[in-house]
Nucleic acid binder design. Structure first.
Lengths: 203, 203
DNA sequence: CTTGCTACTTACTTACTAGTAAGTTAGGAT
DNA sequence: ATCCTAACTTACTAGTAAGTAAGTAGCAAG
């Protein structure tokens, strides 16, 4: 690896941007190499194929999310703090919601995606789902949260809502993720954001 | 229009299938013409461009959803019946959830989509949102439904959940839309499906 | 100082893309 | 009978896609 130029890292980074903005079939090597000031063959030097590049990209995103969630876990905080961490991750990952998350972008071309990509994307969803399920379980058991639906379904519904909101936002143009998260807070805490953030700050 | 062969209709129909399965950039004219036993030029005869074909396709999907929702409306049924109609539409539109909805597929390439497509897709979302908001308003006013969040946000969250669930399903492989809808029922009716479908049948 | 490796480049190929122009065919109207 | 038009076809073009093969610049070790 050339540590000074870090062309490889820049390629992954630019490809991630493009995937989120246009989907797998929506960008070409020219869209990567052009802005980076390298040639298409440089991409092929680092990645055997577009699929290989894409695999690494998903793996990197998974690492990012995993490091975030494990960081919340390690903090030893309450379920409330854990879920607020997830909310923060979602908001931070796409502040203006102009782009999709890598998974949302990949889902479209998913059937034709290489097995390695499928596998990692699946893993990413399963890990997040398992983590969120645990947070809901603990949150309910400790009396921090209140809901009827089973934790596993709650986790799936939360992930779906965030994912879907981002998709709809892209078409409608209205940023609504903040309101959606607020809606979820009301649902699980029965409080407003002000109440809850005060809670978190106090903890 | 050739009413016997209906090539034009078959083209739109096949394109819709392909859009849902692979996204806008994921299929070519060959994928349409091949199975239909016509030549690519036949597509160009009916549609000036891929964007034009896509515009018609979205318009057709909008008509479908519009006809469904207005049908529920015209039925003069309760808000419960209206929302159950929406649930039915979602389930019916994609029984096995192997494909995305046309909007979810388009969202990926949305920035580069032609203005006509953007406009109609936006309209489709706004119409559905307005209709669902009204259903939630009426449902709450008439005491059929019970929730804290404002109806407009409820509508957005429901649409997001359905949309997102379909996206996640595509990656994880698990069909969960039925459970998600069940979760929503519990949330707004505080009942199980059995209770509620009995309700609907009785009405 | 030359050998060898990393990180590329130049120059190319094959395959496919949307789209076009001109010609053909079948059936209905005149 | 012929003319017209709708609904195509054949044959093509220009552009772009991913991917490849062979060559090279710069640096580090022996």
């Amino acid at each position: 690896m050339n540590e000074r130029t870090d062309t490889r890292g820049k390629i992954v980074s630019r490809a991630t941007e493009l995937l989120k903005e246009r989907g797998y079939n929506g960008f070409s090597y020219n869209d990567i190499s052009g802005p980076l000031g390298v040639r298409n063959a440089a991409i092929h030097y680092h990645f055997g194929s577009k699929a290989e590049l894409c695999t690494e990209l998903v793996e990197q995103y998974r690492e990012l999310l995993r490091s975030q969630t494990s960081q919340f876990m390690a903090s030893g905080g309450s379920a409330t703090e854990q879920i607020e961490g997830y909310f923060r991750f979602c908001m931070h990952e796409c502040p203006d919601c102009s782009s999709l998350c890598p998974l949302g972008a990949l889902a479209v071309d998913f059937e034709r995606a290489p097995d390695a990509v499928k596998e990692r994307a699946k893993l990413l969803i399963e890990e997040t789902h398992a983590w969120l399920t645990r947070v809901f379980e603990v949150g309910k058991a400790q009396g921090e949260m209140s809901f009827q639906t089973e934790p596993s379904l709650m986790a799936h519904m939360l992930m779906s809502t965030v994912q879907g909101s981002r998709t709809l936002q892209r078409i409608s143009g209205h940023t609504r993720l903040e309101a959606v998260i607020e809606g979820w807070r009301a649902q699980i805490f029965g409080t407003t954001a002000a109440d809850n953030s005060a809670d978190t700050a106090a903890a």
